[in-house]
Design a binder for these strands. Sequence first.
DNA 1: CTGCCACTTCAAGTCAACTTGAGGTCAAGA
DNA 2: TCTTGACCTCAAGTTGACTTGAAGTGGCAG
Lengths: 139, 139
Amino acid sequence: MALFDIAEVGRRSGVPASTLRFYEEKGLIESIGRRGLRRTFDVDVFERLSLIALGRSAGFSLEEIGGMLRRDGGPEIDRAQLLMKADEIDRTIRRLRALRNGLRHAAACEAPSHAQCPTFRRLMAVAAERARKTGRRVR
Amino acid sequence: MALFDIAEVGRRSGVPASTLRFYEEKGLIESIGRRGLRRTFDVDVFERLSLIALGRSAGFSLEEIGGMLRRDGGPEIDRAQLLMKADEIDRTIRRLRALRNGLRHAAACEAPSHAQCPTFRRLMAVAAERARKTGRRVR
DNA sequence: CTGCCACTTCAAGTCAACTTGAGGTCAAGA
DNA sequence: TCTTGACCTCAAGTTGACTTGAAGTGGCAG
C-alpha cells in the first residue's frame, strides 16, 4: 500500500491540499491516478515536495524549480545554477550582516542622530550604491 | 539648494517617482512640503531610501522596515526592538549559511544523483521540516 | 499671459503563490 | 439504499510591492 490520497499527503508533508492541487496544475508534482475523482499519489511525491521546499527556501521561484525538476524525472539539477544561487545567498548574508550590525549599533549608539555616526553613514552609503546599480528586485 | 522635487530624488536615488509616492503613502519617507502641488524633499530622504533599500535587499518587508525606521513611542522600547530584530537576523544568517553550504556541496558532490547524496538529503529534510512547521514563508 | 508638460490624485492593474468559496461527485459506512 | 463528507473543479479573492492610466493642476520658459 504505497498509495496516498491528497489529505494523507497533506498530513505527512504539511502541504495543504489546495497547494498540492496547485502544484499539480503547475506540473511540479503529479498524481499517479485517480480513484473515482480522487487523486492518488505515490511515495515519490514526498521527495518531490521536499525538493520544492528546499528550492523555495533557497529563493527559487516555482517556475525555476519546475525547470529543474522537469529536466528529467530525477533531481538532476544544474550545478552551475546551484553555485549561482549559493553566491547570491552569500551576498544576501553580507547584507544581512551589515544590517544587523547597523541595528545593533543604532540601539547602542549615543550620538544625537544616526546621521552623525560614521558607522551608520558607511552602512548607508553601501546600501545606496547597491540600490542605484541594481534597481529593484530581491529574492 | 537642499530641496529636491520628486523627479530629482528619483534621478539621484534610482527609485521611480511612483515608488516614492507609494513609500510616502506608506509613511516610509516624507516630503518636507509642497511647491504648488509638487512634493519637495529634503536631503534626508536619500539616507532614508538607502535604509529602505538595505532592508529590502536583506529581505524585510516594507512593514518591518517601517517598524525599524519609525522611532515612535519610547526610545527604550525602540532599542529593544532593534536588538530583537538583530537577533532575528542572526538566526536567518545561520540558516542561510547552512543552505549555502548545502548548495555548494550539492554542486560539487560526485554522487550519481542529488537524491543519493546524504548531505543533500539532509538539506531537503530540513527544508521540508521547516515547511511543515512554519507553513508558508521564504527568506 | 499662455501653453506645455511635469507633476498631482485615485483607481485599477500586475505578478507570484496561494487560499477560499460555490456548487458538484462519489466511496464508504450505517 | 441512503447519507455523509471528503474530494473534485473552476472562478475569484488575497497579499505585498509596486506600476499604469486617466483626468486634473499649476510652475515656469517664452
